[in-house]
Amino acid sequence: MDRILVTGASGFVARHLIGELLRAGYLVRGTVRTRSRLQSIQAATVALAPGREDRLEIVEADLLDDAGWASAMADVQAVMHVATVIVAEEPRDPSTVIRPAVEGTERILRFAHAEGIRRVVMTSSIATVGYGHGYDSGVRTYTEADFTDLSKMRHPWAYCIGKTRAEQAAWAFASGKGMELTTIHPGAILGPASDPQTSISLGLVSGLLDGSTPAMPRIGFAISDVRDVAAMHLAALRDPESIGQRYLCTGPYTRFDQVAAILRRAYPDYPVTLKTVPDWLMRLVALMNGPVRQIINDIGNEKHFDGAKGERLLGRPYFTVEEAILSAAESLIRLGLVHRPNSARPRQPEPAE
């Protein structure tokens, strides 16, 4: 059996990807910065690939340190580079996000090449596609042919900078060294949590369900189901025609208030708000950094990302936006991450008119 290295094994996407690989018959070696989340990874593996836990090995390796990477790459046939740093608020020091993204990617590719590994599938983002194109407002659709231009971004965003520079570095290295690279570009990743150690992105759902989100920005985003993102990595690994290609893994544009409406219909007794915050106030609050700074580039812009190419690679339809949202909600409640009101009783979503 081929052994696949998955970086950042404790992450939301990585845990689902490990499950996909194990179910498909691969051996998996996952990297973590520290072993503090080992129990969480094991719990996710039991949930997602029961009976295959013995084919998973976890090793320590830090994106900002050479130690451990040579041995991590030993006897590996392909690398899935998923590891990234995601923070809930724009950091005071952007390098805490940018350095692991860029230096970590360069380090992983360098050690993979030294070990003779040519095949790499990398988790990128729509952040490397739909920004810095000079638009302050309007409706536009982006494809894999579009690349974020950091020099034209009005509002710097550490995650976007790190992801874009990392992908640029990856393509440059792969081209110069003859490596076989594919990049996968999800949007806001929802879908079911496998264990209590969940992703920051699921805070979008939990904040609405528990009432800690008192009002919503008037923006939307491309939602990706974590199950599609993981499956697309595996599909890329198996399809030689994916080499040298970028793939958007994105569903239709969905407004924040549409997410709230889906949750209110399914969970009528939960305190899901439908209040929105005017754009002018969001721009004012963004001057003070915080979470708003990360979405300021999207205010006034309706960005659609054409995921048709990725869906063809996947070989099946994406999970619907509603499935991604409600599966996230169900898992958060089931795992005790959102407390159920005494009167709460989930119901099936109403059919679309």
Rank of each mutant, 00 (worst) to 15 (best):
R119N: 07
R119Y: 06
R119K: 11
R119V: 05
R119I: 07
V120E: 11
V120N: 07
V120F: 11
V120M: 13
V121F: 13
V121G: 13
V121M: 14
V121K: 10
V121N: 12
M122N: 13
M122R: 14
M122Q: 15
M122P: 13
M122I: 15
M122V: 14
M122G: 14
T123G: 03
T123H: 02
T123W: 05
S124M: 02
S124L: 04
S124R: 02
S124G: 09
S124F: 02
S125A: 09
S125V: 01
S125D: 06
S125L: 02
I126R: 05
I126K: 07
I126F: 08
A127N: 00
A127T: 01
T128Q: 03
T128I: 11
T128H: 01
T128V: 13
V129R: 04
V129P: 04
V129W: 06
V129S: 04
G130Q: 08
G130H: 02
G130A: 13
G130R: 07
Y131M: 12
Y131F: 15
Y131V: 00
Y131C: 08
G132S: 12
G132N: 10
G132P: 03
G132C: 04
G132Q: 04
G132T: 09
H133N: 09
H133T: 00
H133F: 11
H133G: 06
G134V: 08
G134W: 01
Y135P: 08
Y135V: 15
Y135N: 13
Y135C: 14
D136K: 09
D136E: 13
D136G: 11
D136F: 00
S137C: 11
S137E: 12
S137G: 10
S137M: 11
S137V: 08
S137A: 14
S137D: 12
G138T: 07
G138A: 12
G138I: 04
G138R: 10
V139Q: 13
V139R: 15
V139Y: 15
V139D: 15
V139S: 15
R140V: 08
T141D: 10
T141Q: 10
T143L: 07
T143E: 00
T143Q: 04
T143M: 01
T143V: 04
E144L: 05
E144G: 09
E144Q: 09
E144F: 04
E144M: 08
A145P: 12
A145R: 14
A145K: 14
A145E: 15
A145W: 12
A145G: 14
A145S: 15
D146N: 09
D146V: 03
D146G: 00
D146M: 01
F147K: 14
F147P: 07
T148M: 03
T148N: 00
T148Q: 01
D149Y: 10
D149S: 12
D149W: 05
L150C: 02
L150H: 07
S151F: 00
S151K: 05
S151Q: 13
S151D: 13
S151C: 10
K152P: 06
K152G: 09
